[in-house]
Each structure stands twice: as C-alpha cells, then as structure tokens.
Design a protein around this nucleic acid. Sequence first.
DNA 1: GTTAAAACATGACAAATATCATATATTGTT
DNA 2: AACAATATATGATATTTGTCATGTTTTAAC
Lengths: 225, 225
Amino acid sequence: MGKCEQCIIRQFNSLKSLTKEELIRISGCKTTKTIKKGEIIFEEGENINGIFCVKDGICKLSKLSANGKDQIVKLVVKGDLLGQRSLVGEESANLSAVALNDMEVCFIPKHEIMNDLQQNSKFSFDVLQQMAKDLKESDDIIVNMAQKSVKQRLAETLIYVYNHFGNNDEGFLDVILSREDYANIVGTATESAIRILSQLKKEGLISTSGKQIKIEDLKGLERIE
Amino acid sequence: MGKCEQCIIRQFNSLKSLTKEELIRISGCKTTKTIKKGEIIFEEGENINGIFCVKDGICKLSKLSANGKDQIVKLVVKGDLLGQRSLVGEESANLSAVALNDMEVCFIPKHEIMNDLQQNSKFSFDVLQQMAKDLKESDDIIVNMAQKSVKQRLAETLIYVYNHFGNNDEGFLDVILSREDYANIVGTATESAIRILSQLKKEGLISTSGKQIKIEDLKGLERIE
DNA sequence: GTTAAAACATGACAAATATCATATATTGTT
DNA sequence: AACAATATATGATATTTGTCATGTTTTAAC
C-alpha cells in the first residue's frame, strides 16, 4: 500500500500542510479503497467518521430533495478531500457521494486526523481556506440558480466541465455525465435538460455521440443569455 | 469605547476562542461604527481588509446578478461575524452587506486578526466550524432553490425569520423586510412575492399591516407543498 | 449477435413564474 | 395637512419550465 508522505496527490489538498511525522502516522492507519462507477461512497445522514482523499476518479455530491429528485451540489475530483465539512461540524453527512467513474480513494479515520486539525494550525488554516473557497462557490451557485435560466445554467455547466476536465482524444468532454446528471446539476427536469441539449446541437454550439458531448463553440455557449 | 474582553457579544462567535491577551490587543485597534438602516457596510468587489463583529442590528448579504437583480444569500445578525470568508480567502468581498435596521458593528483590521487565525488553532478551528455551518446552509439553499416552488421557499423564509427573530409586542415579525427583500431571498420577481403573500393572507396563514407580517398559522405554513 | 433494460429524444399540453400595465396604499418630507 | 416618492397590490398576458405519453437509440448482459 502507498505511503502518504510519498503520495503526490496530497500536494493538491490540505494534507500537504501536515508534518512528515503526521503523514507517516496517517499513512499507517489509512485504508485505500477502489470504488466502481455508480457506487456510493457515503450517503446523507451517514456517519462517515473520517475523510476521504481522492486519488483518482470523480464523484458527485448530491442531496435528495422532498420531491424525490437528487440535486448535485458539487463535483469532487482527483486531489480533493471529501467529508471535511462533516468532520469539522462533527455531524453526519449532509450530502451523498456517488462515483461518476472508477475511483481510488484513501480513507483516513476521524480520530487520526481530528487532533491534527485542532492542533496543527497550518493544516487547520489550509482546510479553512478550502472551505472558504467551497463556500464562495456555493454562494455563487445560489445566485445562478435564482437568477439565470435553465439554458444559461446548462451552458455554464458544460463550460465548467470543459474547463475542469477537458477533452479526450476525440474532442469529447472527458467526463461523461448522463442527461439526468446534467439535469440534477442545473436543477431541472431530465426532459428539459435533454431538450436544451438538442437545442444547443441545432444551434451548432455542441455536438453529441451517444452520451458523449463535444463543445463546438465555446464562445457561443458563453454568450447565451 | 467598549472593551472586547468585556463585550458579551463575543460569546456568540469565534472571538470567544481568543486569549485574554489577544482580546485586549484587538480591543485597542478595533473601531466601532454605527450604521443606519439601508446603509452599505461593504460592497462586492471591495477589499474589506478586516472583519466586522455585529454588536446590534441585522444586515443582508447579497450579490448582484447579471440581470440586475440582487440575490440575498444570508441574513447576518447580532453576534455574527462578517467578512471572515474574504479574510481567509485573502480576496475581495464576494457579497455586499447592507443594513436592514440600525446597526452597531466593530471593525477589526485584517493585520490584527490574521496572525491569530494562523497561529491560535483554537480560534482557527472555531472559525472553521462556523464556516462549515455556513457551507451546509448554503448547500441546503441550493437544493431548495432547485427543487422547491416559490411558494414553498417564501413560506420557509417566513418561518426562518419567525424562528430567528421572533415577534414584536403586537405579534408581527420583529424584522421588517420589504416585499422586494423577500423576493430577493426567495429568488423570484417582486410581483410574484407580493402575489404569494396575498395568497397566504387569503388562506389565513399570515396577516399583514403595511410592511409588517404576522404569522397566523405556523403549522399551515410548514405544510405547504 | 440478440435481447432486455436503461437512457435519450420529442410532441402535446399543463403549470408555474415573469413581465408589463396600472391602480392603490404607505411613508417620509415639507 | 398636502405632497411626492416609494412600496404594495392585482389583472392581463407572455414565457419558461414541468409533466405525461410515446417512440427511438444506446448500453450492457448474456
């Protein structure tokens, strides 16, 4: 099993602020898991009792609403931590995490990391900065949800996916989300998301092949009002 | 001018985790401001260079969207801190803060509090916990925005105001928001907010007198679907 | 390769919400 | 008290989005 102090992933998240001794201790107690596409990492309400460090793959953080629809709040990628909020708030998960493709994650139990969080102020401040960033993003999403049309939000989601995950060899977005996932990010009905994607196709802004989507005119997508 | 180490307000926020020495130092450099209803405390994009401790009054945190509408993201009340996120993220304000009634706030300059944040891990962890709470609330708002009707959201906002600020002598909500403010919290057109309030009145769930609103049937409001 | 299940697509219609117009009420100012 | 400015109220209508029905394509399992 890999060692945290040699793991390159930690450079991308707050774990980089841990001391070598802390990393070695954590390395000794972490467990590495392989998670298949579609599998649940944790569900809302669950006590996760630790944090996950995403070594590879992507997952969605979502919450089930009263009407039975899932709302995706955030996409978590390689290098991100998962579960910090619940850890800090000392409460059960507010969101569910489901793998969007095959993943590899390391799980660090709460009792091993909690002390570091309370005593290593560099680490704690780093987690704080990440959380501040997440909070800003969430606040911005609130504004978008409230003030932009479904079409605008969907276009922005495509741009977001393009900017964060890029293209594969054939020019298609490298992360494959179902139409339902897009609908659940944007906060609309699946049929509406499909309809708008068809519309964007007709307008020549994107093209598709099965579930795959290719951005044909980024500027055009950005211009949608 | 009051002294932080004797100020009762700090018991309600993260400042309670500062040491006596830190408090005395901060007390010496803070400035106390009186802000009238409707006045701007800071605007999005502004460098606030410190945090505000709200001693009295209430303000709204909002963001202007492209279509010219303000979206209210959070109400900040007596005892809360203001500006932590920008401080931690070391960036300009993402939201504007406008007083909803007369306020009294203390301003603590960045350079005086930043060291404490980076070195006093108890304080830093306390701020982290507050930010985790804010993040959870923002995520929950995203889900509500995406999945609930305007009527539900408005009803929930009324319940929120009732639970957090209570009633005055005559049984009206103690915080007076304009119909436009309600619309900007819920993320709808002002006319729609007004229309729904009228509807709630007809249904006997609330009553009004000018801008004042009285909750007549809390259970009924909670039951709206 | 066949086949069943799941996902995608689209039309028709219904419901929710926004916009525009206009009237009334409230509030603050002189 | 009179006035202007602002906020509230409501009707008529347009637009957006959701829902239901149904057909097609894609995917995954055998």
